[in-house]
């Protein structure tokens, strides 16, 4: 098939940029290890408490090392369960010292939810039957909002929690 000379130049430039672009993304994903959240572990959605990470005492923020934390969350319509404080009240806020490495691990008891800390790259889907996880360094102090960004029912827009990244 005949191609016009200018069209050849245009397509060579276009396809060339495409290859370069995909190479950059590929290096990011496979060499630098920056893959989208794709945790493969499964869980029984009707019995999430049976999993160690989501037992009531393990919910919310846990320190696991110097500057290293795990945040385990059970999402359900229309709430993020972060466990209870010493007085037995539900914890409504996550407070993380700036510069910590945080592993978020999340599952849901009912429908699909989103898990997005607005203003950061923490953004993943939470689906029944699966645990999703994402590790990040919280390196900017400030008050963030953790919101559900996948429609989960009539109260979807009330599903949110405060995340405080503070200077210790």
């Amino acid at each position: 098939m005949h191609l016009h000379k200018y069209e050849k130049i245009w397509l060579t430039f276009g396809i060339g940029s495409l290859i370069l672009f995909l190479t950059v993304i590929g290096i990011g994903a496979f060499y630098k290890g920056s893959q989208p959240p794709s945790h493969l572990a499964t869980i029984d959605p009707q019995n999430v408490e049976a999993h160690e990470a989501f037992r009531e005492e393990n919910l919310g923020l846990r320190k696991v090392g110097d500057n290293e934390y795990i945040v385990s969350v059970v999402a359900s319509a229309f709430n993020y369960d972060l466990g209870k404080d010493e007085e037995g009240n539900a914890i409504r806020e996550i407070r993380i010292p700036v510069g910590s490495t945080v592993l978020f691990q999340v599952t849901t008891k009912d429908v699909i939810h989103g898990f997005e800390i607005a203003g950061t790259n923490v953004n993943m889907m939470v689906e029944p039957g699966y645990i999703n996880s994402l590790e990040t360094v919280m390196d900017k102090p400030g008050t963030y909002t953790l919101i559900c960004n996948e429609y989960c029912g009539s109260g979807h827009h009330f599903m949110a929690t405060k995340v405080e990244v503070f200077e210790p």
């Binding site: 397509l11 276009g14 396809i15 495409l18 672009f21 995909l22 993304i25 590929g26 994903a29 496979f30 893959q35 989208p36 959240p37 794709s38 945790h39 493969l40 572990a41 499964t42 953004n123 993943m124 889907m125 939470v126 689906e127 039957g129 699966y130 645990i131 999703n132 996880s133």
Partner: peptide, 24 residues
């Protein structure tokens, strides 16, 4: 479905490459 659990990231990447073929 890029940010979803339960799908191998290698296959996500393969489909991303195929997605970009429509640019041609």
């Amino acid at each position: 479905q890029l940010t979803e659990p339960g799908i191998d990231p290698v296959w996500k990447f393969i489909q991303v490459v195929l997605t970009f073929m429509v640019i041609i």
